[in-house]
Write a protein that binds this DNA or RNA. Structure first.
Lengths: 336, 336
DNA sequence: GTCCTGTTGGCAATCGGTTGCCGACCTCCG
DNA sequence: CGGAGGTCGGCAACCGATTGCCAACAGGAC
């Protein structure tokens, strides 16, 4: 029953095998391997040798049972294939693997229900959880946080650790840039209504644009995808604005494509600014002007904070991550 | 010792808690939950109710210990952030999650050593492994396959299950296309020397191009990245060819960028064909003509095959995946 | 009433580690 | 030489499930 399929697998070596080889007890082997110094140095050496010889690998499940530590972290995001998250995933993976832990990825497909279910499924087998752009409400997130350490990314909930890039610097520079080009009326092409980050960006724009003498309207909500961006063009044109800030680069690129298909010149007839600086946003034509969010750092930082909550030492001091304006070619002075 | 960090966590409910609530033994609870019909229907019902009430979640580790099944699959690829793999990861995730299993992702960063180490680290906690574009040698792969069921993607090893898209149809159509445009001398911008898929593509081109009366040279090896593509331009120009087939779209895009920077017109002075049809390859300018590899299907298929090797029933019959030529705008008749 | 069979549930071993506690032995010191 | 203290290693309980085996009991056939 232990092996299925057609091929017979060889069972992995256990500490019992090592113990038998050396005439020791399993507890001694366990200590030799995990508590350096607790055991006579020569014995410890012999244990290590036999372990290597037998190609011994500790069984993480067996260890997890008594210790409660699985050495595994969970990362849940809305959409694994969204290019926005590639750097984040890589950053998180780097730190996790660097600490000898394993990262489990899962996606919620933009659904709060699915997200909750996934989280509950993962929870028993992980030490901590990173929730990116969670679609859950505050209450649900709090409940999860009661079970295991939890760190949010692109979302804030009172009194819970979160990594939220500071959007203000990037937005300020972007608006200064648009203002200096002579734009007076803007639109924000917003993302999903459940997106906390979309609201944050909108609220910030709502503060900052009028302060520069520009009008701004919200168009949306829309799906945070190429398609969502394309859908937006009709309302953008109807609104009469000369520049659009899209919730993210995917929507910006979608909008750009729709413009091309509709014969709207970018940037001469319409300026477009995206968010995040995803892979590919610099090889559209024109390349997208965007507000870069360093999500690779956010991913690293989130994992560091989980480790910190787990009580690990040598976790570096929290690092601020903030958005940065990147001027490319999708913005220009409006035609009069 | 069980809880760390500042917040106290509430311990998860176990089958012992349920048993105590009902005055039953844990074994009965276990059976009620997993062997429908083995237990009196009313008892089973009561167990389910209390389980729901206590918000019971099975502890996967505890289950894995006696059964040897972890309900987890591993997926190792060379580079998590390579857009080529996004669809593959999503496909694999879909099937895995659909079967109620968990997928663990890891990357080898193009290093065979790291790949071997990662595989060994993962192995004890997974039921099966998918290796994408493995940099390991055949012998190492065989050893891993002896421990747990293993399925390869974009790589073949005698007698091991593998999902390898059939490149021939795509390459044939691409070469017919180039030949009909009047190209007579081609280059293949090859990927890493450890890449089995790069060699397969090259070998196929080497068969098919001369058969159409075209010459072909290999330029490389190079890194399978934007950068690798950019590096290639110097040798491409020196070779005097009129068209280049790049190992993948990333390199094709890199080459395209280098062309633009160097003032080489694409497609009029140089035609470029990529591979894989990654996200972004249709919004370069010009959009990249490419040979699409349906890696989403490959991901699904690989996971299906792991399940099959695990002895699961209702695994669909293997599906052939094959590459397909996609004509866009980076190819045209050569200037004479 | 006896025997057989089927249903239902419990006992206890097991998976592979971890760890508190104890005891044997050695060393060192007064 | 006796005792204190330290080092080293083993015993056994425990983590949370699963499962083979058995016992108790019910119902049906004869």
């Amino acid at each position: 029953m232990k092996q299925r399929g057609n091929t017979d697998r060889k069972p992995a070596a256990t500490i019992y095998d090592i113990a038998r080889h050396l005439g020791l007890s399993p507890s001694t082997v366990s200590r030799a391997l995990n508590k350096p110094g607790r055991i006579n140095a020569k014995t410890e050496q012999r244990v290590r040798e036999v372990a290597a010889e037998l190609n011994y690998r500790i069984n993480p499940m067996a260890r997890a049972l008594p210790t409660g530590r699985t050495n595994t972290l969970g990362l849940i995001l809305t959409d694994i294939t969204n290019p926005v998250y590639f750097p984040l995933v890589r950053g998180a993976e780097r730190i996790t693997a660097g600490a000898g832990h394993t990262l489990v990825l899962a996606e919620s497909q933009e659904s709060g229900t699915l997200e909750a279910e996934t989280a509950r499924r993962l929870l028993p087998s992980i030490d901590g959880l990173v929730l990116v752009a969670s679609r859950l409400d505050d209450e649900q997130i709090r409940e999860l946080a009661e079970v295991k350490p939890l760190v949010l990314v692109n979302r804030a909930v009172e009194s819970l650790p979160a990594v939220v890039p500071d959007v203000l610097p990037g937005i300020r520079d972007a608006l200064d840039h648009l203002a200096s080009l002579g734009h007076a009326s803007l639109a924000f092409l917003s993302g999903p209504s459940a997106s906390w980050m979309s609201r944050l960006r909108w609220e910030t724009l709502l503060d900052e644009a009028p302060a520069r003498g520009m009008t701004i309207v919200e168009i949306g909500p829309g799906a945070p995808t190429l398609d969502g961006g394309e859908q937006g063009l009709r309302r953008v044109r109807a609104s009469g604005v000369t520049a659009v800030v899209a919730y993210n680069d995917l929507m910006a690129i979608g909008l750009l494509r729709a413009c091309r298909a509709a014969g709207v010149e970018v940037p001469s007839s319409l300026s477009i600014v995206g968010f995040d600086d995803i892979f590919g946003s610099d090889f559209t034509s024109p390349p997208i002007t965007t507000i870069r969010t360093p999500l690779d750092l956010a991913g690293e930082e989130a994992v560091h904070q989980v480790f910190a909550a787990l009580g690990d030492d040598d976790v570096p001091a929290p690092r601020r991550v903030s958005a940065q304006f990147v001027e490319r070619a999708s913005t220009a002075a409006p035609a009069r």
